[in-house]
């Protein structure tokens, strides 16, 4: 620091930096440990549930104890039966998410950037969006068969719209003044997109991706309930057919964990990419 002040010409020395905020280079104070307040209520409810189930106050054929649900998962893991279900569901969501968000990225960028494309395409897409997505299921099965393609496409349809809307409104909402800065430095076409539009759109796009992923998890359940012989959704149906509520609850729990984990991954990515943001939430990191 003393080095840089030494090299300052007299002009700069005259100007003391006013209202200097904490330097960004300063090491961040380690975050204080906080009691996970949010965990108290769920844990208490689980304990209550466990007690009620053990004392027989809850009918075990309808609502088995949490310990039994965990036992079911452990058993499925031990026999190895769990992994194909888990893997296949993850693969379907992954493929559907990739397909849906890729298509949405291309179309959202186009309609956001080019008013002509927006006027041409957006009404159609908005119309399609209003079709309840599950209504597609019979058609997709008819077109693409009961196997993987129809499932992945259904998930992709679910993922598509939030990503598309997020990106389009993001591109449209890019501050004209910042675009002008780019133009002033003679950026155009791809360079302008890469250096101004892309970063400016990133926050809205990432929100779109997170919403899309959430819908992807919803749609995989629908797709797997409609007809599958593997996958976590199949476990739901299987548990119902064979009268084993612990299997259904185990599957629900796994869905919750997977959905939460993948969303946390995207949330982490967002925080990394959006460190620059000046928002109400950004100070807490």
């Amino acid at each position: 620091m003393s080095d840089s002040t030494l090299t300052l010409p007299p002009l700069a020395v005259r100007t003391a930096a006013p209202a200097a905020r904490p330097l960004p280079a300063a090491p961040r104070a380690p975050r204080r440990w906080q009691w996970p307040l949010g965990a108290v209520l769920p844990l208490a409810l689980l304990a209550l549930w466990e007690i009620l189930a053990r004392t027989g106050a809850l009918p075990p054929n309808l609502l088995p104890a949490p310990s039994k649900v965990l036992g079911t998962i452990a058993e499925l893991a031990r026999t190895g039966e769990l992994w194909p279900h888990l893997g296949l569901t993850l693969a379907r969501v992954g493929a559907g998410f990739a397909l849906g968000s890729l298509a949405a990225t291309a179309l959202g960028a186009l309609t956001g950037y080019a008013p002509l494309a927006r006027r041409l395409l957006d009404p159609l897409l908005q119309g399609v969006r209003n079709i309840p997505s599950l209504a597609w299921v019979p058609l997709f099965i008819l077109w693409m068969g009961i196997y993987e393609t129809s499932k992945v496409v259904l998930i992709a349809v679910g993922v598509f719209f939030p990503v598309y809307l997020g990106l389009m409104s993001g591109v449209q909402g890019v501050d004209r003044k910042l675009v002008e800065v780019g133009r002033m430095y003679r950026l155009s076409g791809l360079a302008l997109v890469r250096r101004v539009f892309l970063p400016a759109t990133l926050p809205a796009y990432l929100v779109g991706l997170r919403n899309g992923l959430g819908l992807g998890w919803m749609f995989v359940v629908a797709a797997e309930i409609m007809g599958a012989n593997k996958g976590l959704g199949f476990l739901l149906v299987d548990g119902q057919m064979t009268g084993r509520p612990q299997t259904i609850l185990a599957s629900i729990l796994l869905f919750a964990i997977l959905g939460r984990t993948t969303d946390a991954g995207l949330a982490w990515l967002s925080r990394r990419l959006l460190r620059w943001q000046d928002t109400h939430g950004s100070e807490q990191g």
């Binding site: 090299t7 300052l8 010409p9 020395v13 200097a20 330097l23 960004p24 280079a25």
Partner: peptide, 11 residues
């Protein structure tokens, strides 16, 4: 340095 922001380059 000329505008007196040498210490804020990384901000």
């Amino acid at each position: 340095a000329r505008v007196g922001l040498a210490d804020f380059a990384g901000a």
